[in-house]
């Protein structure tokens, strides 16, 4: 299973999910939501939600072709996610409600802006 690959690599519109760092065209986010974390982000069909859960401010693009076996994907913690384009670094944090939900579930939130490395 793979995420839709944005048709234009240089598009300024491309957005990266703040939680899983997948890079998609905003249209795809609207149509399909985030292929990895839609369950918690609930972006599908709601542009407002997309605006807060994704950002255009990211740096570096990874084409994850074989997530299971890729070290890059593992390092990026995306090896359980779908194939697709991921950002190396995403600036910003997920909305507070999502962060609270993660906390409820006992999941550690790791921002994708490389601020906490351990």
């Amino acid at each position: 299973m793979s995420a839709p690959i944005p048709p234009q690599a240089r598009s300024k519109q491309l957005r990266a999910c703040l939680l899983c760092s997948i890079v998609q065209h905003p249209m795809d986010f609207r149509r399909e939501g985030c292929p990895n974390c839609e369950e918690i982000m609930q972006m599908k069909g709601t542009p407002d939600r997309i605006a807060v859960c994704t950002t255009t401010y990211f740096d570096g693009i990874i084409a994850v072709i074989d997530p299971e076996n890729s070290w890059v994907a593992r390092w990026q913690r995306t090896s359980k996610y779908v194939r697709g384009m991921y950002a190396v670094r995403v600036k910003g944090r997920i909305p507070e409600d999502v962060e609270a939900e993660l906390e409820n579930r006992g999941i550690k939130y790791r921002p994708r802006d490389q601020t906490d490395q351990d």
Binding site: G33, N36, C37, E38, E39, R77, K80, R105, I107, K108
Partner: peptide
Amino acid sequence: AAVRYTGDMNDIPQR
């Protein structure tokens, strides 16, 4: 529709 987000890899330290 969506796999429950587990963040299963988030607990592993980066090192």
